[in-house]
Design a binder for these strands. Structure first.
Length: 548
RNA sequence: GUGCCCGUAGCUCAAUCGGAUAGAGCACCAGCCUUCUAAGCUGGGGGUUGUGGGUUCGAUCCCCGCCGGGCACGCCA
């Protein structure tokens, strides 16, 4: 395994350092993958970092460290380079070990145990049940599901949760909007609510409500019907997108369970609240917020801030010492607020919730372009592009791959025309195509695939073959890094590169050659590539088709 | 005005904990199908990393100023 090789190399350098500079702690030794292949398989910068401290020239120190390296069965050579880098080059056997590892581990290849089975709660999408899911929710769903999968692959016990804001003023607004449309459809003269939802879907729900013999005068009934209808629609959209949640948490339950009141009481007991202008405030500025927040309005109702805090308390109480919230960056203002609320509660409960709880992944907005113009994402205008639109037009795999192919904190320009007209240029097809090609070769090899032995890899000597093997060996590191950074785009880029190296190899060499030993070795290699492509695509929620 | 985030090739984006000559794709130009899938491959031109300083062996990355863009600044959610 690559991890074993890395620790083996670190070990060699540690031994050398101990003889060259006995007083120096070995913990400073770090290995990195050089960007350029010419710089070997691993590089170490320890000589430059220690040069000043040891009062020696970096290159001279590096040379001494190289000279002191013990013999190794995997190390081909160590070279001094640049200002004092030590470049380590692995021999073919070490590189090809990744092929053996990938085939031995199968679908588990790339996994690790950094999570140690600890529970972690991921909250994402959390759309209000006031309209269909839009593209921004899609980015969040794709990100959240991929991050969940990455953490699971590191042996975290992941719970995916969707929080429904089904208790606030926007739900009243929804009910009034549907009621007004229903009355219109009955031929009554009504004035549509000033801040009502203007989307076409409101009319559809109203018509459906009437078709089910609903009474437009019964607002509570309208409300229940509308919320149920929109939740159903959102569920269907998520299903079509391939995203499943383990739990749905309803904001309304925080009220019916008394958790909102309990939170208010506890915050008052914390001594961090005060009355002002008839409202109850929390001194969140004591915990880093830039202004104090109202908890209870002068009319006696609560601001959304209180159930938010109550909700996050339940995360902690439910045993999630780790929690990740995936949200649009337009909500970044809530981060300091929620954390401050939790800290204030800690004054009375002594819960010991960390100051940086929960963790946040904030993603920038998705700008949708169509016909060369921006489509405004306005729920009230009812003209935004829905997630369903995108899936229908572009395809599920492409949308998912595309949406996780960029860092979360960069703005996303999704050009629908481009995505539709250039479907063939979408990177997801490039990666999937590599997988399909391998499947095709394997199908022609037929029963010979069974004879692909990982103990006969020695015939693989071409630079392209060793580069592919080396790339396979990187996969576990990529997954560990991506999980640590909560950044699935790293996996997407890795897959693009792996697929590229495979296509290049495929075009240059023939797999099914006459030489039996070489053929078996090459079959083993592409079997391993296929496995890694499958594992990686699966983490991103993208299918790995056998034919295209 | 204050806070947070972003600024990299014509376009869309990478760049690990501060590493070596800043990389891909698209687009453009020139080639490759009698051969396991051409949704592919090979080669080429493309850059003062917004800008000015600082820190150091070394800065796209860290610190400060400025310019440009986004978001948030409510007893809305």
């Amino acid at each position: 395994m690559s991890a074993e090789i890395k620790s083996h190399l670190t070990d060699l350098l540690t031994q050398s350092l101990a003889s060259v500079a006995p007083q120096t702690p070995a913990s400073i030794i770090a290995l990195e993958r050089p960007k350029q292949a010419a710089h070997g398989d691993w590089a170490c910068n320890v000589a430059m970092q220690l040069a000043k401290q040891l009062k020696r020239k970096p290159r001279e120190l590096a040379q001494a460290l190289i000279a002191g390296l013990p013999a190794s069965p995997w190390l081909e050579c160590a070279e001094l380079a640049g200002p004092g880098f030590i470049n380590l080059r692995l021999n073919p056997a070490a590189k090809l070990d990744a092929v053996r590892a990938a085939l031995a581990a199968g679908v588990r290849y790339g996994r690790a145990d950094t999570g140690h089975g600890r529970p972690v709660l991921l909250e994402f999408v959390s759309a209000n049940p006031t309209g269909p899911l839009h593209v921004g929710h899609g980015r969040q769903a794709a990100l959240g599901d991929a991050i969940s999968a990455l953490l699971q692959a590191q042996n975290w016990k992941v719970t995916r949760e969707f929080y429904y804001n089904d208790a606030g003023a926007q739900i009243d607004n929804l009910a009034l909007s549907v009621q007004a449309r229903a009355r219109e459809q009955r031929g009554e003269a009504v004035s549509f609510p000033e801040s009502g939802y203007h989307g076409e879907y409101i009319r559809e729900i109203a018509a459906d409500y009437l078709a089910h013999n609903g009474d437009p005068g019964d607002l509570a009934s309208v409300r229940r019907f509308a919320v149920a209808a929109l939740r159903r629609e959102q569920d269907e959209d998520l299903k079509a997108f391939g995203v499943k949640f383990d739990n749905y948490y309803l904001e309304s339950s925080l009220y019916t369970d008394g958790k909102v009141e309990a939170t208010v009481s506890a915050l008052i007991a914390s001594g961090k609240t005060y009355e002002h202008d008839g409202a109850l405030w929390l001194r969140t500025t004591d915990y880093g917020d830039d202004k104090d927040r109202v908890m209870r309005k002068s009319d006696g109702s609560h601001t959304y801030f209180v159930p938010d805090v109550a909700y996050h308390v339940t995360k902690w109480q439910r045993g999630f010492a780790h929690a990740v919230n995936i949200q649009g960056s337009d909500h970044h203002g809530t981060v300091a607020r929620v954390r401050a609320g939790l800290q204030a509660l800690g004054e009375v409960t002594g819960a010991g919730i960390p100051r940086d709880y929960p963790d946040y992944v904030l993603h920038k907005m998705v700008t949708v372009m169509k016909g060369g113009e921006e489509v405004k994402l306005s729920k009230r205008a009812g003209s935004y592009v829905t997630l369903r639109d995108l899936i229908d037009e572009v395809g599920r795999d492409a949308v998912r791959f595309f949406l996780v192919s960029r860092k979360a904190d960069t703005e996303f320009v999704f050009d629908i025309d481009l995505a539709k007209s250039q479907t063939e240029d979408n990177p997801v097809y490039y990666v999937q195509y590599a997988h399909a090609r391998i499947c095709s070769v394997l199908a022609q090899a037929g029963a010979q695939v069974q004879s692909a032995h990982t103990d006969g890899l020695a015939p693989l000597t071409l630079p392209r073959e060793l580069a592919l093997a080396r790339r396979l060996g990187e996969f576990p590191e990529i997954l560990a890094d991506a999980a640590r950074a909560l950044a699935p785009h790293q996996v997407a880029f890795y897959l693009r590169e792996l697929a590229g190296e495979f296509h290049s190899y495929y075009n240059a060499e023939r797999i099914l050659v006459a030489d039996e030993g070489l053929k078996r070795a090459r079959l083993a290699l592409i079997l391993a590539v296929r496995q890694v492509l499958q594992n990686g695509l699966s983490l991103l929620g993208v299918s790995a088709p056998e034919k295209m």
